[in-house]
Design a protein around this nucleic acid. Structure first.
Lengths: 216, 216
DNA sequence: GAACTAACTGTACGATCGGACGTATTGTTT
DNA sequence: AAACAATACGTCCGATCGTACAGTTAGTTC
């Protein structure tokens, strides 16, 4: 595999071939995310992808080597998009409750957007791979762990700053928030628009109620 | 389609052919549920199903007419299993909080059981079909609505009996419980056993905290 | 017993899948 | 200029998919 071999020791003199390949891989992976968000990573087909992008099936095959590698590249591309659309913008908000609310709001906007007809890539594909051991499942599981850890970390900051109850169980509340967001993603696909309000109300309750989510 | 044409007006004189067909359909649909719980309703293949059960591919085809009909039959079979494994046993508990806890405990047992390697059929397949309009999506969405409605109804009974806060928002809490259960289903697939405790703690918090989940 | 119906089999078709070549093109290195 | 490396293409393969169709077997109805 020749993955991301760009940017060598002497910057400026990058290999034009690798650069071109990286660009192609990127474009393919991005489109793969869109397709897989709606139809799933399994239904993803190399031939269909090539047809959509107007390139040859063999080209895609040569760039990724195998379908599993293509799936992994899609997971990675989705991860980067999530980083850029949710995590990075929310970092502008102050740590603690404010950033937590920003994360949730960015997540809602990210999932609600008509740009992503299939909703959250991770949610759509994790339940497809959760019973199928392999590198794809591992990658998706890692994303889930990271996301919940991000929420938990912000919850701990909020608790430390006295913005929430001091005895708040960060991991448990993070688990709840993620659960509600995933459920909201599905509900939105089914046409339930009221679910966004529900998410906000749940978040309010979790952050304000000193007893809720606390390990007693 | 000759769906469930058994049990005519004069009971006792059932058509043996239809009875046999119904039995075959049942057996196939049951196995389809097992397969689809792990690999999804899309990955379900008529040929594979026939091979597993030792019957001819054409036989399956003739019994269901199309793959979509087979998928719908699987959804129906899963619904009946869920009814028998979760809803019906929980009805032994007293209405209100007791039955609510019974429902959740039965759900956990149902999902944790090694008999169901793919976990909850609905959870596994809804996220696969939520972006794909059609009768299969509608059937799965109906199951979800019914399940949340069952939870909400029990919550209302609990509130009316004074077992929880009177101003508890039944629909919102039902949404939360379902969300947490679905997340737990996925977490269990990923090998996280602690999630069962998390579910119980969340349920405790939701039922005891008067403020949590209330519309204020 | 004859006509009919439903369950089931066997075979075949067109489409699509992932993957395995061999080859041409383009860019890099020596 | 020569050797090499990476992208990209065209073609072919075996496997599997859903479905259609003709035919056989078993049970019902007249």
């Amino acid at each position: 595999m020749s993955e991301q071999r760009v940017a060598p020791a002497d910057a400026g003199a990058v290999d034009g071939r690798l650069l071109r390949g990286a660009r192609s891989r990127r474009a393919i992976a991005r489109h793969a995310v869109d397709v897989a968000s709606v139809e799933g990573l399994t239904a993803l087909s190399i031939g269909r992808l090539a047809g959509d992008l107007g390139i040859s099936k063999s080209g895609v095959q040569a760039l990724f080597g195998s379908k599993e590698n293509l799936q992994l590249a899609a997971v990675e591309a989705a991860r980067e998009t999530f980083l850029a659309e949710v995590l990075r913008p929310a970092r502008a908000a102050a740590p603690g409750v404010a950033r937590l609310r920003a994360l949730v709001e960015r997540w809602i906007a990210y999932v609600e957007s008509p740009l992503y007809p299939g909703g959250c890539f991770r949610v759509a594909n994790l339940s497809e791979f959760d019973s199928r051991p392999g590198p794809v499942r591992d990658a998706l599981a890692r994303d889930t762990r990271d996301w919940q850890a991000t929420l938990a970390a912000e919850l701990r900051r909020a608790a430390a700053a006295g913005e929430t109850a001091a005895d708040l169980d960060a991991e448990l509340v993070a688990f709840q928030i993620d659960a509600v967001l995933c459920a909201a993603n599905t509900a939105l696909r089914l046409g339930d628009d009221q679910v966004v309000d529900k998410v906000r109300r749940v978040l309010d309750a979790l952050l304000s109620a000193p007893a809720a989510g606390a390990a007693r």
